[in-house]
Every structure is written in C-alpha cells, then in structure tokens.
Amino acid sequence: MGETPRLIATDIDGTLIRDDHTVSARTASVLARISGQGTPVVLVTGRPVRWLKLVYDQLAEPLPAVCANGAVVYDPVRDEVLRADPLAPQHLAEVAERLRAEVPGIAFAVEILDSREMRHEGRYPLRWDADHEAIRLVRTPEELLSVPAVKLLVRAGEQDPDAFVELVAAAVAGLAEATHSSNSGLVEISAAGVTKAAGLDWYCDRLGVAAADVLAFGDMPNDVPMLSWAGRGVAVANAHRAVLAVADEVTAANTEDGVAAYLEKIFGVG
C-alpha cells in the first residue's frame, strides 16, 4: 500500500463504535473529513440493513455499507441494495439438516429480504430487537427455510463461541461459511464464498479500487478475511486473538477511538 489508502473499510461493533453503541464526536468528524476529501469510507459489518440507522443517525452523512458479513451491499442514499448473495432455500435446508444431526438443542433464525426482516423459531432466543415489526416468529421449520436468506443464525444455549463456531463450521464445510462476531455463542452462516472480504472486493471493483489500496479495521473473527485481503489490515487493541494474529498493525481500543486516532495520523486530520 502507498502512504495514503484509496478506500477505508471499517467494521462497526467493537471497532468503530464504543461499547455503549455510540459514535464519538471525534470519530464522526474524522470520517466526515476523509470522505469530504474524496476518499470513500465503507462500513463493513455483520449487522443487517435494518440496524444501520442507529449508526447513520450519529454520522454527518450515511456511508455505503457491506452488511450481513458480505452478503449485502447497500447504498443508503438511495436506500438501495446493490448486491445480495443469499443462501438458497435448498441450501438452507441442507445446512439445517446437518446441524440438527450434529448439535443437540440447536435453534435457528434467518435474515431475509436483504436483511430487512428476520424470522425465527420459537426456541431461538431474541436478545435485541425482539419487539421490532420486522421480527417474525414462524411455526414450522419449513416456513423458516422457505425463502432465500442472507444469513442463517444459529444458537444452542450457552456455548464457548470459538469452540462452537468450529463445530458448526465442520458440519457445514463445503456448503456454507460459518463465523462469529460476538461472545454470546451466536454463529452466523452465509452462502459458500460469502465473507466480508468478498462483499468488499465486489464494491471496490465497482469503484476501480484494488485490494492493495484498501485500509481495513476490525476486531472479531468475521473480520479476519477482510483484514487478510486488504492492503493494510488494522486491529483495534480489544480485538479477538485471531484478528490480532493477522493484522498488519494494532491501534487503540474502540473505547479510545482507535480508528479515528489511526486515521488522523494517516490523513493528517483531526
């Protein structure tokens, strides 16, 4: 990578925003200055599209986003999905069949309609937007898996997140991608080949930006493909050990505005 990157890509939770889910004034200002100077800034997140407004409301302007761990590329200005790469119903059914055979007590939810809506089984525990109008309980496994899903969400009670994702990944190997971005025992499954790196690569190709010219920030295992792909991958100090292992550099923690601090040095803003 040259001295100044041509595109900035950053994870949201645990990386860009603080633990109280707020964007600091410092971070918002730095992103606005860099974007205003003509360098694209892209949010690359496991979040569904419907959760982006909580971040956009704290920024000077909405930023393009690669959502659902790479399965959805979203233009917030037009409220338009530029690309979606979901799991087809037949693949969802096969993944679910494999996992039910391997994991006792497993429960599923799916992100559908480009992650604007979520469906879940009755035993799947809802921990965040349970009362949101886009959340729907389904009565049968067939209904749950009947439409394409940009992400299949898997829980099985309290689990060690790293051990659980290894178990799930082994069960779906060759059929889908499994990763995690939380410490609560949630595994996120995408179509084969769908990662944050793949979604960001598609968007960068659209802009004519090479991977070597991308600066990327992250903190959790779902960020590993993106940080490995980018010309420069930077972990925040609070990152998972798998992210620290692949990062080219480490900046301050998310609670200390690590992304903003790094960008201030690179771009001379602040």
Rank of each mutant, 00 (worst) to 15 (best):
M1R: 07
P5C: 14
D11A: 12
I12S: 09
D13N: 12
G14S: 09
L16F: 04
I17S: 11
D19C: 08
D19F: 06
S24A: 09
S29I: 00
G36M: 10
T39R: 08
V44S: 08
T45R: 02
T45P: 01
R50N: 02
L59W: 10
L59Y: 07
A60H: 09
A60I: 05
P64N: 08
V66F: 06
C67P: 12
G70H: 14
V72K: 14
V73F: 00
P76W: 14
R78I: 07
E80D: 10
R83K: 14
A88N: 09
L99W: 03
V103P: 10
P104D: 11
V110C: 13
D114R: 08
S115F: 00
H120Y: 03
G122F: 00
R123L: 04
L126A: 02
A130D: 08
I135E: 07
L137Q: 01
V138P: 06
E142V: 05
L145H: 03
L145G: 04
R155S: 04
Q159P: 14
D162Q: 10
V165G: 13
A170W: 00
V172P: 15
A173F: 03
G174I: 15
E177V: 15
T179A: 14
S182I: 13
N183H: 15
N183M: 14
N183G: 15
G185R: 14
A191T: 14
A192Y: 07
K196D: 10
A198T: 11
A212V: 15
D223L: 14
D223C: 12
V224C: 15
L227A: 09
G233A: 13
V234P: 01
V236Y: 06
N238P: 09
E249V: 10
N254G: 02
D257G: 06
G258K: 07
G258A: 11
L263S: 04
E264K: 03
F267E: 03
